[in-house]
Design a protein around this nucleic acid. Structure first.
Lengths: 136, 136
DNA sequence: ATTTAATTCGTAATGATTATTATTTCGAGA
DNA sequence: TCTCGAAATAATAATCATTACGAATTAAAT
């Protein structure tokens, strides 16, 4: 996923192209890892000193809505990263030091053999936490 | 796990027996589901109008530390429930409406076959979210 | 009963997120 | 190109969960 493709998808959905959105997308394309909202804010303030959290959150949620980003919760903060529609559904190893991730292709829902009749499964979370080779 | 057993374990670890702690434990023993901090506060204020969040959180974290409770994050809020040391390690289906859980004996770490050499695995989370039969 | 450290209370601070309103900007159509 | 309305943003302020802190209280050991 590159910036232009993402902006194209936004356009199809009726969203406008703004400098701030471009910049947000650039950040995610450049860094392939989970990033907290405040990191995004800090980064963008280099170019747009006045950006507010409102802009950040509104865009992060919107981008998650249209499946350009995906979100998870790390240490009480929402983190976002580029959705990987290239790999399809998968999970992550998440480094608890630097936040970098490694894709886990294995999905427990494929192997699980548990009786869940009567239960309406909407979602699931499988994440492995630890230290990546660099932080180890 | 009943209240007395829990208080016994606390005593062994050097923690004092207080009315507030008893009351917190009672709540968890009575309701076998994930509960948010503010629910605990509300419940306890019936008996102790003056309890502060400080007391709630300090105790919830302490009880999680000594493995009497276990924690998860639901909708941006930390939720707690009695730990289930009877069954050993397992996971949960969590109802996103009422917080009730169903044990999942299957653990993905037993089936996973992914190359994680160089990575130091410390922990993992596997949870299934949805509606339980009652809330469905 | 005395002592002491643990615990609680009352309240204030923090930090992430959400909401509000006025202003600006994008981009479709004249 | 110009104009206009909708969408997006800036600049706050408000909210909500969580954490912090000093003073007062209390459990329990001696």
């Amino acid at each position: 996923m590159n910036v232009e493709t993402a902006l194209q998808r936004l356009k199809e959905k009726g969203y406008k192209r703004t400098k701030q959105r471009e910049r947000i997308l650039e950040i995610f394309v450049k860094q392939d890892q989970y990033i907290a909202a405040k990191e995004i804010l800090k980064e963008i303030q280099n170019d747009f000193p006045g950006v507010s959290y409102d802009t950040i959150y509104r865009n992060l949620y919107m981008l998650t809505d249209v499946d350009i980003l995906e979100a998870t919760e790390l240490g009480g903060e929402k983190h976002f990263r580029l959705g990987c529609d290239t790999h399809g559904h998968h999970h992550h190893f998440i480094c608890t030091t630097c936040g970098k991730t490694k894709s886990i292709e294995f999905c427990p829902m494929d192997s699980i053999n548990e009786n869940l009749s009567g239960y309406d499964v909407e979602n699931h979370k499988f994440e492995i936490y630890g230290k990546c080779p660099q932080c180890h």
